[in-house]
Simulated scan of single mutants.
Amino acid sequence: MGVAIRTAGEEDRDLVIRLLDEAFQDDPVSGWVFPGDEYRRTTHHRLMAAFTDIVLADGRIDLTEDGSACALWLSVSADEHADEEGPALVREAVDPQNERVELIGRLTADVHPSERAHAYLWMIGVSPERQGEGLGTALITSVLDRCDREGVPAYLEASNARSRTLYERLGFTVVDRPLDLPDGPRMWPMWREPQAR
């Protein structure tokens, strides 16, 4: 069974934000950034909106035709470094009192490889009621197939052990060592070399 995928546009912004918000409500990293269920329910969507806006402007969002899953991708050039002010600007827009909004951006930027151009899977979200149906795999493999054809590596940070296992099945390996958030969960920076077809 094929999964119909299209590129999201500005008109899909609210759908993508809602999808990411729902998909990451129970994620360990989201729980660390926004501790407490009520706080996360009322604030988390603003971070997902900031991420969505960044990728709509500078990358590509793949969306299943039925709107049940999305993947946010950026093309990163060799020796490209993160915008030093970016994490602070995101914090200011999302939740100025929450230093973890800025810290997560700085910590992931510090471990992000910059030696080679690559496709960066920033986030992938699947509606909770549709998880386990292969939608995430379909979204990722459509881009990985292109990466393989073009000889481009891919990179991501897995935010939980379940997603790490999925990414390993797709050819990603943990880069160097995991990222342990201060007093928080572990993330796994992962790299995938293009594979011969």
Rank of each mutant, 00 (worst) to 15 (best):
H112L: 04
A78N: 07
G105E: 05
C147K: 10
N98D: 07
E129I: 08
E129D: 15
W32L: 02
I104M: 12
V126M: 07
V55R: 04
E168H: 09
R146H: 14
A93Q: 13
G136D: 10
D37C: 00
N160A: 03
E168N: 02
A82P: 10
I124R: 00
H44A: 13
W191G: 03
G136Q: 11
I5E: 12
A119W: 15
G132D: 04
P185H: 07
L56E: 08
A78M: 07
P128D: 02
D79V: 00
P178R: 04
A50M: 09
M187E: 14
P178I: 06
D62T: 11
R60V: 15
I104S: 06
V101I: 10
R169N: 14
A93F: 04
M187R: 03
C70P: 02
L156H: 13
S127T: 09
R91N: 06
D110T: 00
I140M: 15
D148H: 13
P194T: 06
R169Q: 15
A93E: 13
E84S: 05
D58Q: 12
E38V: 12
E193T: 05
A158P: 05
G151E: 14
H45M: 05
D79M: 07
L107I: 10
E115Q: 14
V33D: 02
L139R: 11
G86H: 13
A23F: 04
G67V: 12
A117H: 09
F34M: 04
E10S: 06
E102T: 02
G31L: 08
S163W: 05
I140Y: 03
P153T: 03
E85I: 02
A57F: 00
R116F: 11
T52I: 04
E80M: 11
P35Q: 03
V143A: 14
V16D: 01
D53G: 04
G125T: 07
S30R: 03
G125N: 02
E92L: 12
Y120K: 09
E129G: 08
A23Y: 03
G132W: 09
T108V: 13
R130T: 01
L103Y: 06
H45W: 15
R60K: 15
E85N: 14
G132I: 04
D58V: 01
L135K: 08
R192M: 08
Y167Q: 08
F172Q: 11
L72F: 13
T43H: 15
I104V: 15
L15G: 01
W188N: 02
V175W: 11
V152D: 06
L72A: 10
R197L: 10
L89V: 07
T43G: 00
V175I: 12
A161H: 08
L166S: 04
Y155E: 11
E133P: 00
L19T: 06
A154W: 11
M123Y: 14
E80L: 08
R18V: 03
E11T: 13
V111H: 03
E115N: 08
Q131R: 12
V174K: 06
A93R: 13
A117S: 15
A158M: 07
D79G: 01
V29A: 11
